[in-house]
């Protein structure tokens, strides 16, 4: 019984979003750990972006620039295929979210607590996604067309379409959060059973593969929904 109690205690500790530090302004703003880690990710990515885009040339590009162009072009083409011709303006947002989620899911390898394990982060991301989806619908069809679209293809399923407004962000955030947390819990259980060597193989799947797949699925679903909203 003591092992399970210990595990539950550990899990509860991990589930709680601890306060990393408090900003002494307006009576103390509490900054939770996920926000602090997000700032670290932002700093790393900003520095990486600055370093990578320096000295870009139109003629005679270097090796670094070629790799960068291939990677960015590949991701861009992938989104262009999914989101369609009219949705091109949303691609930069999608790529940003993809990069953020990819780094956030992998940062557990470096000893940080992944921000996506905090439900608040995934809820915020899902809310941003649903706002963008509905905004893209309004932008493309106009307010009237957007409202009319709820009654597509038959008027009788309008309640289900309205319900989808809430189901989509819920399922987006729960999928991301549940997957990251699930991988983490399974890893903890494996570490409890066999502390040496075996976790390495599983860590490759749960930490690296699963995290990247979930980042991909999140942006892929969002872009599919946007395409549906604007087509």
């Amino acid at each position: 019984m003591s092992i399970t109690d210990e595990l539950v205690k550990n899990l509860l500790e991990e589930l709680n979003c601890e306060t990393a530090f408090t900003i002494p302004l307006f009576g103390g703003i509490e900054v939770s750990e996920s926000v602090a880690v997000t700032w670290i990710i932002m700093a790393v990515m900003t520095i990486a972006a600055i370093c990578l885009v320096r000295n870009l040339k139109v003629s005679n590009p270097g090796k670094k620039q070629l790799i960068l162009e291939t990677a960015i072009g590949g991701i861009y083409n992938f989104f262009e295929d999914t989101i369609g011709e009219h949705g091109k303006r949303y691609i930069p947002y999608m790529m940003t979210v993809l990069l953020y989620l990819g780094v956030a899911n992998l940062i557990g390898l470096f000893g940080f607590k992944p921000p996506t394990k905090d439900l608040n982060v995934t809820v915020a991301l899902a809310l941003m996604s649903i706002v963008l989806i509905e905004y893209s619908g309004i932008h493309q069809r106009g307010l009237k067309g957007w409202i009319k679209n709820f009654a597509q293809p038959v008027a009788i399923i309008a309640p289900i379409n309205v319900l989808e407004l809430f189901i989509r962000p819920l399922s987006l955030c729960m999928r991301l959060f549940g997957n990251v947390l699930g991988g983490f819990v399974v890893m903890e259980l494996i570490k409890l059973l066999v502390p040496v060597f075996v976790p390495i193989a599983f860590s490759c799947y749960f930490d690296i593969f699963d995290g990247l797949i979930q980042a991909y699925v999140f942006v892929f679903l969002t872009s599919l929904f946007i395409k549906e909203a604007i087509d």
Partner: peptide, 9 residues
């Protein structure tokens, strides 16, 4: 991949 993600949910 999309179907698996939805089924897995």
């Amino acid at each position: 991949l999309l179907g698996s993600a939805l089924a897995e949910a």
